[in-house]
Simulated assay, not measured.
Amino acid sequence: MLKGIAALSAESGLAVANVFHAGDGNMHPLILFDANKEGQLALAEEVGGKILELCVAAGGSITGEHGVGREKINQMCSQFQADEISVFML
């Protein structure tokens, strides 16, 4: 995961600080961007989505300890099937 995040960081030009619970694999990547530069927020969100997709590909989850909010909602379909997501909406 750390190698994959480092590659995404290099590719995007955005620094990523990795903070995590080493014992349980719970990751909290901090994507650093300048909100005053046009497009940097969107780029940071894109990198965040790719990190979540890496997590799923490695057998992990996008949900973490705090669930899924606005930041992670677009990657729900990376981990769950349509019928599972429909149950979540009930």
Rank of each mutant, 00 (worst) to 15 (best):
M1W: 03
L2F: 04
A7V: 01
A7D: 10
A7F: 02
L8D: 04
L8M: 04
S9T: 00
E11I: 00
G13Q: 07
A15K: 05
A17S: 15
V19F: 11
F20M: 15
H21W: 01
H21V: 02
H21C: 04
A22S: 14
G23H: 02
G23Q: 04
G23S: 07
D24P: 13
H28V: 00
P29R: 00
I31H: 01
L32Y: 01
D34R: 06
D34Q: 06
D34E: 09
D34V: 00
A35M: 06
N36R: 14
K37N: 14
Q40A: 11
Q40R: 10
A42P: 10
A42D: 11
L43S: 02
A44L: 02
A44N: 04
E45F: 00
E45W: 01
G48H: 02
K50T: 01
I51V: 11
I51Q: 05
L52W: 03
E53H: 08
V56E: 07
V56W: 05
A57I: 03
G59K: 09
G60V: 09
S61I: 04
T63F: 11
E65K: 08
E65P: 13
E65S: 10
H66T: 07
H66L: 15
G69D: 01
G69F: 02
E71C: 02
I73D: 12
I73M: 13
M76G: 12
M76Y: 09
C77W: 05
C77L: 12
C77Y: 08
S78A: 15
F80I: 09
A82L: 15
A82N: 13
S86P: 09
V87M: 12
F88K: 11
F88L: 15
M89F: 09
